[in-house]
């Protein structure tokens, strides 16, 4: 091995990371510089900072807090705003990012600490719109109606939602001035209403969508469909639900002898 190849200049990765100690404290940015390794993602870089918590100036600091789970972009926990774009940090590869890499939490949600946010409102919204299929009873009802294979394949795309919160962060109408539940739970209503057993309660979900903070608050900026890491056709779902809720509105208003 020649001297030149071992004496290469040490490559580093620069970060600007949003720090906030708790829910109410004043946020600030802290810079970090860590040694380069090939094929790093943002999470492995954050792990490096955790292992050796010194900022760029060489001062010892608290390790950066963040959330993570599956590390393969299916759980949605590690979402954060990376260089201005909300996305999962597990699939954000350092080699593909412009430096300094700026990491911020998705501030649409309450910031628990640093890059960690509280996404509970999304789970509350799923409860609000009844995003489940009720099958419990006092006796075995047997198998439900069959689902056409084509519809199953289509519905699978909608079922990829991992409640990551990226679409809420991207939506201009989800903010502290509005109580809009955001695109993700809306599309889930379409998923459960498409299921042959779920369709037996579709009016309940549609009526829930017509509540305050529901479907009516969509302003069609269509950022959600651009931002969704799973490629879920969120705006198509919204438009389809517009049609369904309008029909439900007429049923409710003028009366109908069939509920579903």
């Amino acid at each position: 091995m020649t001297a030149s190849s071992t004496m290469t200049e040490e490559k580093t990765i620069r970060f600007e990371i949003y720090r906030q100690d708790d829910l109410d404290s004043t946020p600030y940015f802290e810079e970090f510089e860590i040694p380069y390794r090939a094929n790093m993602n943002v999470i492995s870089a954050l792990m490096e900072i955790r292992r050796n918590p010194f900022n760029k100036k060489g001062e010892k600091t608290t390790p950066v807090a963040w959330d993570m789970g599956c590390l393969e972009e299916v759980c949605g926990a590690c979402s954060m705003v990376i260089n201005g774009t909300p996305r999962q940090s597990c699939t954000a590869l350092v080699d593909q990012l412009e430096q300094p890499i700026r990491l911020e939490p998705m501030k649409t949600f309450p910031v628990v600490r640093d890059l960690m946010v509280d996404r509970s409102r999304m789970f509350d919204s799923l409860k609000k719109v009844k995003a489940w299929i009720p099958i419990d009873g006092t006796y075995d009802l047997g198998p439900g109606p069959r689902m056409p294979e084509k519809r199953r394949q289509w519905a699978y795309e909608l079922s990829k939602c991992m409640t990551c919160g990226v679409c809420l962060e991207a939506c201009p109408n989800v903010n502290s001035k509005s109580n809009f539940i955001g695109p993700a739970p809306l599309s889930q209503v379409r998923l459960f209403n498409a299921h042959p057993t779920g369709a037996m309660n579709k009016n309940e979900r549609l009526n829930a969508l017509m509540g305050d903070g529901g479907l009516g608050d969509c302003g069609n900026s269509q950022n959600c469909v651009q931002a969704c890491p799973k490629g879920i056709p969120l705006t198509t779902s919204i438009a389809a639900l517009n049609r369904d809720t309008n029909l439900q509105m007429f049923r409710n208003f003028f009366g109908s002898d069939s509920e579903v």
Binding site: G84, P172, N173, K177, G219, N220, S221, Q222
Partner: peptide
Amino acid sequence: IAFTSRNNPRQFGTFRNWMFI
């Protein structure tokens, strides 16, 4: 309605987002 939105054209400079604004 206009004043309950928080516009974000810098993060999302798409045609529809500009139309929204």
